[in-house]
Design a protein around this nucleic acid. Structure first.
Lengths: 131, 131
DNA sequence: GCTTGACCTTCCAGTTACTGGAGGGCCCAA
DNA sequence: TTGGGCCCTCCAGTAACTGGAAGGTCAAGC
């Protein structure tokens, strides 16, 4: 099956855009080999790594966090504590973002509810923003 | 009081960094006048507009949304319906982001909980990312 | 043998909203 | 006159792609 794939096939397997896979190579995240004609060639390892990165990105990890996680993923002798501490730090970031967004949602939904939203100029939203 | 202020004073009044205020001028958002020596001069109107933008940004509105809101803020004949529709669209964005982040938090906190986080290499977090 | 189309390649520019820094004026107080 | 604290402009960098131009490769069809 997935012995050696082109970038297009790797994209289909991972759900990542072709452009993104090229970008990941450019920044040294996942490095394919090259065939005689200069085309990128992805082995099963590289496809797995791309899948790994795609999932980590979907969980909101930054590229640098992905780089660190990928290094641990490759290192069969890693300590799971290292992985966990990266994940926990990211989890805190996510929770902080949720808190911020909840506050925005609260304020904004209140403003939206109190605005008539008709042809008249009076507007509690603008008034709220003006302070 | 706030008759005419320098950029530094405008920054203190609005809580915005000086650099950000310069940037807002550069993109045509809030345009101060200039004094004879080339320094920016902010009247009460500009200071109010900067405050308005600062609040809108704090609620997560993009610069382009701020530009639209500011145009409505300036237009005393606006229809509040226009403001409300911008705000409601943004509210939907915020809610969508919260939903995404909640899903990430859910998945990630589950992975974190199941990881021993010690010196051993076995790691449910990495396993989960690998799929 | 030649063309067509779907791949693939590189390189360059743009996106969002700033942020940092270099290099240099202006102005008031000691 | 020197110092410090403002102010100015311009340039480059950030994160993570994304779009587009210009061109090479390869198999299928006429």
């Amino acid at each position: 099956m997935s012995a050696l794939t082109s970038i297009g096939d790797a994209a289909k397997h991972t759900g990542l855009p072709v452009k993104t896979i090229r970008y990941y190579e450019e920044i040294g995240l996942v490095l394919p080999r090259r065939s005689a004609n200069g085309y990128r060639v992805f082995g099963p390892t590289e496809v797995h790594e791309l899948t790994f990165v795609a999932r980590a990105r979907a969980l909101g990890f930054s590229i640098e966090e992905c780089r660190a996680l990928l290094a641990l993923y490759r290192d069969k002798d890693r300590a799971s504590g290292e992985v966990k501490s990266i994940a926990r730090a990211h989890l805190r970031d996510i929770e902080a973002k949720i808190t911020d967004l909840e506050a925005m949602r609260q304020t904004l939904s209140h403003l939206v509810e109190t605005c008539a939203g008709d042809d008249r100029p009076d507007c509690p939203i603008l008034a709220g923003l003006a302070g």
